[in-house]
């Protein structure tokens, strides 16, 4: 086996590599994947700024008109149906022709609670590249406020 002597051996890099491999393993058995190997659909990220709460719903391959999105108080629900086989572009899909089948197909429904500061009156949602991005304003009294420190 040829060894490249110019390569500097870094023992910490070896730990990192071990950690990376474990990371990948845990990714595979993550709670966002069922035992059959299907991923939870759709995955959701939530973040907030001073004035808004932002929700990213990772829902690739959807017809936006077939997504039901609702906000009641601070409870956001998203449901709908995805036919995974539509993406194949085949007229008649025959199950025995699948070599591998991992993508989620069927009805889905997820409910998440958002920070209580959200104002249900100020919502807009947009679908781009398979991500539904929901922006919700915060109630005026719950917005971050800068407090000025006065010199005595």
């Amino acid at each position: 086996m040829a060894i490249n002597w110019t390569w500097e051996w870094d023992p910490f890099r070896e730990f990192e590599r071990l950690q990376e491999e474990l990371d990948r393993l845990f990714e595979w058995v993550s709670p966002f994947r069922t035992l059959r190997g299907e991923e939870v659909y759709p995955k959701i990220n939530v973040g907030e700024t001073e004035n808004e709460v932002l929700v990213y719903i990772f829902a690739p391959g959807m017809d936006p008109s077939k997504v039901d999105l609702s906000l009641e108080g601070n409870i956001l629900s998203v449901s709908g149906e995805r036919q995974a086989e539509e993406a194949l572009g085949v007229e008649e899909v025959r199950p025995e022709k699948y070599v591998r089948r991992e993508r989620f197909s069927g009805r889905f429904s997820r409910v998440i609670s958002l920070p209580e500061s959200v104002d249900p009156a100020e919502v807009n949602a947009e679908y781009r590249n398979g991500i539904i991005m929901v922006r919700i304003g915060k109630k005026a009294e719950r917005r971050g406020r800068k407090i000025e420190v006065k010199a005595a």
Binding site: D23, R24, E27, E102
Partner: peptide, 27 residues
Amino acid sequence: RRAMVPAVDVYETEEGVILAADMPGVG
């Protein structure tokens, strides 16, 4: 560096193979 593994479907036809991969956020 750590990348996600996209879920894929692979389907065989007489003409070839069709691969579909979920990569939300990618344009």
